[in-house]
């Protein structure tokens, strides 16, 4: 079957999605206004493929839709009970690995982890909680780092190195011991050249990189995902399109 190069399409949950050669499945879906749950993917950055929340079934094979390129006529399934069930389990593992006390988190209501958990109908964290000990770094005059909530998405790492040219953050260790570290001999944010103008200060999808003295200026209940579910909220980078 002949298909014009400019009008390649695939099927996402039965809907026809056009794509270009440069796009991955999630990029084409987002451009078409379709939501595939994701955390470590951000349309402004090169896909990282680590959180696996965006997993879809593409022609019957499960794959991360942020890194997988579509093919013409591909049949992609995303919003199915089985795939959403797997996403739910991944989310629950993220919740128990860290310390997520949403009622006292300044990101609550604007947090992608929480909003995605709402989307996947996460009523409980199901697994036993790790309750790890992860001290907060409040050394910087303008920003604090609450590592308890880090989901290791590497967006701050990518922003700091690719956009800011600074390498303030890095992921260290492997497997369950992976953690976010700050590039200073002391390990403290105050001893880096991090600044509030950095892209890295504004990409964290959860409540780790927090601007001080803002707190609950916008009250709980009036925040972005209180207004609309995340599936109806276009990513800020795509809002103007």
């Amino acid at each position: 079957m002949f298909q014009n190069k400019d009008t390649y399409t695939f099927l996402l949950d039965g809907k026809t999605i056009p794509f270009t050669e440069e796009q991955t499945i999630i990029q084409a879906a987002m451009a078409a206004g379709e939501y595939i749950p994701h955390l470590c993917f951000n349309p402004e950055f090169k896909p990282h493929g680590s959180c696996k929340i965006c997993t879809v079934s593409a022609n019957g094979r499960q794959t991360a839709s942020c890194t997988q390129q579509p093919q013409a006529g591909m049949v992609v399934e995303s919003n199915t009970p089985q795939i959403n069930g797997e996403r739910l389990a991944l989310l629950q593992m993220l919740f128990v690995e860290g310390n997520h006390f949403c009622p006292s988190c300044e990101k609550s209501g604007d947090c992608q982890l929480q909003a995605t958990a709402y989307e996947m109908n996460m009523m409980s964290s199901h697994f036993d909680h790790f309750f790890p000990d992860r001290p907060v770094d409040a050394s910087h005059p303008e920003y604090l780092l609450d590592f308890n909530r880090c989901i290791l998405c590497s967006l701050c790492v990518r922003a700091s190195s690719d956009v800011d040219g600074k390498d303030v953050f890095s992921l260290a260790g492997r497997g369950i011991k992976t953690r976010l570290i700050v590039n200073a001999e002391s390990g403290r944010l105050a001893d880096t050249n991090f600044s509030g103008d950095d892209k890295a200060a504004h990409v964290c999808p959860v409540g780790v990189i927090i601007k001080k003295r803002v707190g609950f200026a916008v009250p709980i209940g009036q925040r972005s995902f209180d207004e609309h579910p995340i599936s109806f909220t276009p990513h800020p980078a795509l809002k103007d399109n």
Binding site: N99, M123, F131
Partner: peptide, 18 residues
Amino acid sequence: VAVGACAINGGLPAQRNH
């Protein structure tokens, strides 16, 4: 039925856990 954050994840009291 577990009602509320503390029943579900320990909530504020669990912030002593470390």
